[in-house]
């Protein structure tokens, strides 16, 4: 497994861990004591904003830790160049992300036509965002391994 694949894998594991811990924290500290909060739009807005901030911070930390470990183990710096193959893989994973997120958004908003509760729409949006991140990373690893 090459350095980039390891980096993506580390990022993927961090995403899963952060999302799981964050969801559990929000559920236990906000939803359990006050279940009706799920009908409050500002709760979903705040949850989304904080999750985005936490994810960005987690990714930065993962990159720094990975670079340090890589330097210790291999005595080499992580290459900063992003060549043509990286860019094509990035574009292909972005296409997968867009398709899945568009599908998730369509399902989430479309479910409102059938009178489904609004909090389910937000839950679907959150879920599709999470699935997109996971599948995007899996696509990238898969393309690096199988080739283009």
């Amino acid at each position: 497994m090459y350095r980039k694949e390891k980096m993506i894998l580390a990022s993927l594991l961090a995403t899963i861990a952060v999302f799981a811990v964050y969801s559990l924290y929000v559920y236990q500290h906000y939803v359990v004591p006050k279940p009706e909060i799920i009908h409050d739009f500002s709760f979903w807005g705040k949850s989304f904003l904080f999750l985005a901030l936490v994810m960005v911070a987690a990714q930065i930390i993962v990159h720094i830790v990975f670079a340090i470990i890589n330097k210790i183990v291999t005595k080499k710096d992580i290459p900063v160049i992003s060549d043509e193959m990286d860019k094509i893989i990035e574009l292909k994973s972005l296409r997968v992300s867009h398709l899945i997120f568009a599908g998730g958004t369509f399902l989430a908003i479309g479910s409102q036509a059938f009178g489904i509760q609004q909090w389910i729409m937000f839950a679907k949006l959150f879920s599709s965002g999470f699935i997109v991140t996971i599948l995007s990373d899996i696509t990238r690893i898969s393309l690096y391994r199988k080739g283009l």
């Binding site: 290459p79 160049i81 060549d83 043509e84 193959m85 990286d86 199988k146 080739g147 283009l148």
Partner: peptide, 19 residues
């Protein structure tokens, strides 16, 4: 040639067609 080693490996193994 200004790419990563991984790209050269992929080309050599015919997993990627270069531009």
């Amino acid at each position: 040639v200004g790419v990563t080693r991984q790209t050269i490996v992929a080309i050599e193994n015919e997993k990627y067609s270069p531009t």
